[in-house]
Nucleic acid binder design. Sequence first.
DNA 1: GTCCCTGCAAACTATTTGCACCGGG
DNA 2: CCCGGTGCAAATAGTTTGCAGGGAC
Lengths: 165, 165
Amino acid sequence: MQERRQEPGVDALMGQFHAYLAKNQLKTTRQRDLIAHKFFASEGHISIEELLTRSRAENPKIGYATVYRTLKLLTECGLAAHRRFGEGQTMYETAGDTEHHDHLICVECGYVLEFHNDDIEREQERVARSFGFDLVRHRLELYGLCPKARGIKGGSCPNEAASDA
Amino acid sequence: MQERRQEPGVDALMGQFHAYLAKNQLKTTRQRDLIAHKFFASEGHISIEELLTRSRAENPKIGYATVYRTLKLLTECGLAAHRRFGEGQTMYETAGDTEHHDHLICVECGYVLEFHNDDIEREQERVARSFGFDLVRHRLELYGLCPKARGIKGGSCPNEAASDA
DNA sequence: GTCCCTGCAAACTATTTGCACCGGG
DNA sequence: CCCGGTGCAAATAGTTTGCAGGGAC
């Protein structure tokens, strides 16, 4: 098990996106490129709103609808996946050809760490099979107190800064 | 690992609910009792809408707001927990003093099976610790094809009937 | 040139809130 | 009695959709 770090490269992802668009006779537009690029460049998890904000930094005329529509496209072609951690709005993360990972979330500061553990994966597979299921995908989220939050319980967590925002 | 079956008893849960209300100087009302009772009696997962429908069967004047408010109370006192499996609306499940469990969901028919696996739990604990986290809770959902759905792929899944609804 | 795409605003869905009246303690 | 609870409807929040004009191919 290890923390995930390396992204597959924004360019490669843009390429996959363009390929998907081409294959489906959809158009490559300035807006889609901008949004997709901002999205791929955003490493962790990002909300529609945040993505819109970042996109508007370069093209103020971008609207919510376009971001939603683009993210829907990205989700369809497997380059994005949406998660709903807390109660707030949906967060998206790049899902490209990156290996699968799960999440470890700090309940105190909201910091999200990605990890991968083969033992758990294997056991999940076994559980599903034991009930006669063909496992397609899964979602595993661990909620806990991160070291920093635990140390200075009550104060603001340093991880807060690291957690993108 | 085994499929969960035994519920802690509706009466006991009602008792816990009443205790919580009393402790917080909240009132025991006909509506709250009715909604809580219908909720506790509903075994699996239930949506606000379904709970409203069932409650209205006995008291047609119950409104959405009351169901939401009651479920919020139940969640606060730990007797209910909400889950968001698909994209639809939030589902609630009784969380009382029942032992923890995870979910195995059929992507074809939506059937939801509950299970518990100590090996996975242990490993999760280990993962969290390895990152310095104090594990508070977790969420594990396995999505796959149930035996029935796999067998008659394309047709309607028999589990659909078993899946409450 | 033809459609698809975009931006805007209206529509929708799920959930929350304000308020006057009701009822539990 | 008093104050919280209820039902209704209006208000929100997040997301989707309809439409007229614009842009990619």
